[in-house]
Nucleic acid binder design. Structure first.
Lengths: 355, 355
DNA sequence: CAGAAAATGAGGTACGCACCTCAAAAACGC
DNA sequence: GCGTTTTTGAGGTGCGTACCTCATTTTCTG
């Protein structure tokens, strides 16, 4: 049987009330007594029963997940994954709300953040580009005691409590090896595409990709990256132009979104299966493109895991509990046609883990 | 506020005792009354607070994980991952014990299984080859109401409650694509190695591998698989002989354990980096071999996730709760040098997921 | 050493639920 | 309509903790 507060009281020779004062850091206890209680705790190996404690407190975890209001597949899928994880976690007193902010307006975002405590939120998960305004807003939140975790794209300067996402530099490197090895020994060129929604990710991926290509696959020439700014038309135009004019292009690395336009362009040009195409995120379009052979590999982070991890980490922070780093590390997944998971999840994204 | 049992009682116009009888399927309630209560539950959207319920029951989940007593790296790592997940889950009333059985003695295993209920175990996770004795023992357990999950290698004929592990056929296929693509267009031969601890896995992997190689990479000849029966000496001997005599061998697919002997043999022969080597499981040796370039890719299942998933699934079964299939699906991970996770976990295995 | 201040103890209530007992009410058989 | 069986209600106790009040004891101050 695990020891309880009563056991501690007996062991320390004090009353239950005193144990309670020590456990919950209430004032009015002598140093000496505090020590006696703590010794008893250590001796008995007491650990607070969190479920009972939460029951007594009738605690609930009101959490805000804040995402850009972009209509991108990725953000949509993430929002959905968060919603699902949230409703599943409702059993454990978690109340998650997904909020959106206008992508290009850091001040609006800051305003939302600032308003959170008044709205009763106790923790925040945030996916946003790092700006000075944002940094200050996050710091203010943390000063008020709200844990803040960065989602997908890190916010190191804000002093966020945790980052939940993959190592984008490593992801870029991984894409690099795959590209290099899949292309084989003969020379060729690689097209790199990137929207610029969250600059930090893209830059890191690109760096990792270039580093590997340069070092290990010198026979491949990596072309300058093409920014498509999330516009399918632009992407289509740029890609078809490049493919038509540069016969040496044998591979495409797509770092951002716009997978749908990309795969369609490739298929329209009859190049499906003739190029090595590597992209990020396993959206439904990428799924079918993998199956059709238009996309060779996808580098993805598991959104279900991401969402569940977010909730676990925020809850741990709110409970002042330690975090199981192993469990919260988001892996860089390589998805080929052959290891495409069937998707019992949302139908939007692969899944796994948790809780 | 979430509705409670009291709200149901009021809504249904019955007493708390009756609600309790209905909720816990106790006898002595008329059909009509049961319906009234259930209607109230549906109307209010009541969901039982599991943490409070478990507190009241002072429920604990005593679980046995049963593994072969093989000294293989894989089994050791799995045991460790289970232990760790177990001690972390101790906070949530989980008491996990890892038991071992003599690998080659199905009757001893059956005896252990049969003895479990008497020893107070309420759920079982089992990694073992499927034999008739085992099948009967598992069925007997399930008849007694103990949930049983199969670990790593499935036990379909036993009627186990759940299988926790990867789709080995898909894993073999994945290894196949990687091998084929990494080898490039020129012809060559591939060596396949397999111990035979858990026949089912190996067979499935082999089938998947062969299917892909045959269909997509006809220029590569896949040699007959070599059984090493877990003996490092035998493996070393077989491999060096093959490599010396068959100059066409450009790749090695190692389906089982004995990674250490394999990588050392390759390094001793000065072939590190000159062969495409794909193996299963990311043991410490494979990690360093990946870094050194001796191993090209590892197909792995995340043991931390596997362990956490095991506990979650068994707990869900014991609570008669539904399972989040998305979270419990064990992904087939492809690990290259570039996406080698740093291992905050056990140092023995990569990690991620689960709670 | 008296008086004030600080520390401690005793006890209760609550959280949401499980599980038990005993009496009262309702339904049933004949 | 009687006795019998079944169903229901009322109420209590406990799980392990939080949080509150009020009395009592101990310690400090001058």
């Amino acid at each position: 049987m695990r020891p309880t507060v009563n056991d501690i009281a007996r062991e320390a020779g004090v009353s239950l009330a005193t144990v309670d004062r020590v456990l919950n850091a209430r004032p009015g206890v002598r140093e000496k007594t505090i020590k006696a209680v703590n010794d008893a705790i250590a001796k008995l190996g007491y650990v607070r029963d969190l479920t009972a404690a939460n029951l007594a407190r009738s605690r609930n975890y009101r959490i805000a997940a804040i995402l850009p209001d972009a209509e991108s597949q990725f953000v949509q899928s993430l929002a959905q994954a968060l919603q699902e994880a949230g409703s599943l976690a409702a059993t454990s007193r978690v109340d998650l709300q997904v909020l959106r902010f206008p992508t290009e307006d850091p001040h609006a975002l800051a305003a939302i953040l600032t308003g959170l405590p008044a709205r009763g939120f106790a923790g925040v998960a945030l996916m946003a580009p790092e700006t000075p305004v944002l940094r200050d807003a996050v710091r203010a939140l943390r000063a008020k005691g709200l844990p803040v975790v960065a989602l997908v794209s890190d916010l190191p300067a804000t002093g966020r409590d945790h980052f939940i996402g993959t190592d984008n530099h490593a992801a870029g490197r991984t894409a690099g090896v795959l590209m290099g090895r899949f292309l084989g020994d003969s020379p060729g060129q690689v097209l790199v595409l990137g929207s610029s929604l969250l600059a930090r990710d893209m830059v890191e991926r690109r760096r990792g990709f270039d580093a590997v290509m340069l070092r290990d696959f010198p026979q491949i020439e990596v072309l300058q990256s093409l920014e498509t700014h999330g516009s399918p038309q632009l992407l289509r135009q740029v890609v078809s132009q490049m493919l038509a004019n540069a016969p040496g292009v044998r591979g495409i690395y797509s770092m951002g979104d716009g997978q749908r336009a990309l795969t369609q362009t490739i298929e329209d040009m009859g190049l499906s299966g003739k190029l090595v195409v590597i992209c990020h995120q396993l959206t439904p379009h990428v799924r079918s493109a993998l199956q059709a052979g238009t996309v060779t590999a996808a580098i993805s982070q598991n959104l279900g895991h991401l969402a569940r991890s977010t909730l676990r980490v925020l809850r741990a922070k709110l409970d002042q509990q330690p975090i199981d780093e192993g469990q919260e590390q988001i892996r860089i997944e390589i998805v080929l046609r052959e290891n495409l998971p069937d998707t019992p999840d949302s139908g939007l994204q692969t899944s796994e883990d948790a809780a």
